[in-house]
Amino acid sequence: METFLQQTLNGLVSGSIYALVALGYTMVYGILGLINFAHGELVMIGALVALQTVTALSGAFPGLHPVILLIAGVAVAVPVCMAVGYLIERIGYRRLRNAPRLAPLITAIGVSFLLQTLAMIIWGREFHVFPQLVSTTPMQPMDGVVVSPLQIFTIVVAFALMGGLMLLVNKSRLGRAMRATAENHRVAGLMGINANGVIAATFIIGSGLAALAGVLFASNYAIAHYAMGFTPGLKAFTAAVLGGIGNLPGAMVGGLVLGLVESFGAGYIEHLTFGFLNSSYQDIFAFMILGAVLIFRPSGLLGERVADRA
């Protein structure tokens, strides 16, 4: 039972990070119908920029409080990622908005690899240590289950951000414009909405969330690396599809479900398959789910858009 609770907690932590990244995918997809393959790389850039800031600051002013360092790291990482996200849209995708379907997709793959390579040139190939700015000392709320302040922090921040985004999309003027553009950007334009501006704003918000996810990711695993964004990116995309792409609450649910599935999968698959499969197959759960969802329920768990629309 303790193991079960512990696995649930593990799943919630990784799941909430997936969910944050998935929001970026789902927002862009909702509005443009494009899978922004490069979104995962923004997670990586966020983590590495934050790391760079923290290292520079703690070098210049030793003894700075970790919380200030963390805030400073985020304060630099988020605008940088927003700028990168905007540039990707402006240079890479905007001209291809009416191109045949394969073109933006191939561009997106290209952008993803380009960002990885550039990161490799800037930060090198080595794994960097991301300082533990929030305590990881285990606490024991009940026998056999441990949780660290960092894990609680991760979940809280992720949920707060998701809540904030929901408010933004559902209550604000920009949010209404985004929903209108997602519906039909030509008609939205006729209603006096600057569709290009709204699309750019979508990319910028998604990129900001990715940067935050990157900082959370790196803090949790204490590691940052030029290729760290690809796998979480792919999994977050799976999460977005799982929840029903284009659907914001869906992305959150999808992220959490995927986190839990991976955690339980790694923990219990050996018993479930009588020893035939084991934790070496942890990474294929995401793909299996993706395939199954697309085949049997293309509109995802919470539904909305139909995958076939692509």
Binding site: I35, R101, L105, N278, D283, L290, G291, L294, A307, D308
Partner: peptide, 30 residues
């Protein structure tokens, strides 16, 4: 199974398929 999928979705599912095959080749020694 992917007949109904188009464009981006197909790309992602095929990507997953490629990884699944590789992971199976890597693990089918037990």
């Amino acid at each position: 199974p992917t007949l109904r999928l188009r464009g981006d979705y197909l790309a992602i599912v095929t990507l997953g398929f490629g990884e699944i095959i590789r992971i199976f080749m890597n693990n089918l020694n037990q």
